[in-house]
């Protein structure tokens, strides 16, 4: 069995996503939930990378205009850059809100956030 990076990476990213979602579903601590969300997001980002074919591809800089194939797909890279930025922003905002919430209530437990219910 040939375990190249190209075959392992999708599986690995899927594992990260599932791990992150599992963390979201089972952790009660808000910080841990944000960590899990970040892990899942990293998994998704790796998923994007894994489909660019970067192992055998060339850097997508058009040095010779006659060669139009064999490059790494540049679009997913651009996309994950955006999504990383968004992910960071979300995490930062979430942590800021959590910090403020913790200041007020002294709890980080997501199951105890029940001032608003029913």
């Amino acid at each position: 069995m040939n375990l190249s990076l190209e075959t392992v990476l999708p599986a690995f990213s899927l594992m990260l996503i599932l791990l992150g979602l599992w963390g979201v579903a089972t952790r009660k601590n808000l910080i841990k939930i944000f960590i899990s969300l970040s892990i899942a997001e990293t998994g998704v980002n790796l998923l994007y990378i894994s489909m660019t074919g970067f192992v055998h591809g060339k850097v997508p800089i058009l040095a010779d205009p006659t060669v139009t194939s064999g490059y790494v797909d540049p679009l997913p890279h651009a996309m994950i850059l955006t999504s990383i930025v968004i992910g960071t922003a979300v995490t930062a905002l979430g942590l800021a809100l959590t910090a403020r919430y913790h200041e007020r209530t002294g709890t980080l437990n997501v199951t105890k956030m029940k001032e608003l219910k029913n």
Binding site: V110, T111, M113, K117
Partner: peptide, 17 residues
């Protein structure tokens, strides 16, 4: 119906998955 809207996000995650 309101019992489902129990304000518990952990429950929401379970439902979502």
């Amino acid at each position: 119906a309101r019992l489902i809207y129990n304000g518990n996000m952990a429950f929401f995650f379970g439902v979502a998955f």
